[in-house]
Amino acid sequence: MVGTEHVEMIPVAKKEIWSAEVNGRPVEVLAPSNAILLDVLRDKVGTLGVKRGCDLGTCGCCSVLIDGTPRLSCLCLAGQVEGSSIITVEGLSEGAHLAPIQSCFAEYGGSQCGFCTPGFLVTAQALLNENNNPSDKEVANAIEGNLCRCTGYQQIVESIQAAAAIHRGEVEPAAPASDPHPDPHPTGPEEPQMPPGHAR
C-alpha cells in the first residue's frame, strides 16, 4: 500500500449467493463473485477462528479443511469451493467435548499466543484422520506449511503425537473443561475423605 499509484480495485464484482456447509451447518451468504474464501469466512460466515496472517499463503494461519483436505483459505476463491463441506477450527470439537488434538495442544504447550493454533489444528486433524500413527517426520511434513513464532514447533509435534495416541485408543481423552460436574458430589470438601487409616 505504499506508493502514489494504488492499484484500482477490480471493478465491483457482482454479488452472488454463496452456499456451502460450514462446520456441518448449511450457510448461504451474499458475497462478491471474486471474494476470497478467507474474507467470506471471517466477515460473512463469522468463523473468526480462521486467522489472517499474511495474505500470501505463507503462514498457514488461515488453513481450513475443504472436504477433508487442508487448504489455505487466503489463496482460495470462495466460488471455487461453492457447495463444499468446510471445517474450521470451530468445527473440530463435538459440543463441549474438545477434539483430542485440541485438548492435547492445550495440555502439551502446542499453543502459546494461539494465533497460528487454528491453522495447526485443522492441518493436524487432517493428518490424524488419515494416519493415526504418524512418525515425527510425517508430522513435520504435514505442518511444514504452517509458521509458528512462539513454540519452535517442538511442543506442537509433541501435542500432535499425544493426540495420535488418543486416536489410536491408547490413551483416554480428557474430560471436557466446560462439563460442570461429571461426578456431582453434594457434600464437597465440607466432609472431605480423610487420608486412609486416619481415625475420625
Binding site: 477462528g49 480462521v50 492445550a106 493454533t117
Partner: peptide
C-alpha cells in the same frame, strides 16, 4: 496448561 488455552484451541480467543 495455559489458563486461556481452551479459548485458543477452540478459535474463541479474540485478537
Amino acid at each position: 496448561a495455559l489458563v486461556d488455552s481452551n479459548a485458543k484451541v477452540t478459535g474463541q480467543a479474540w485478537y
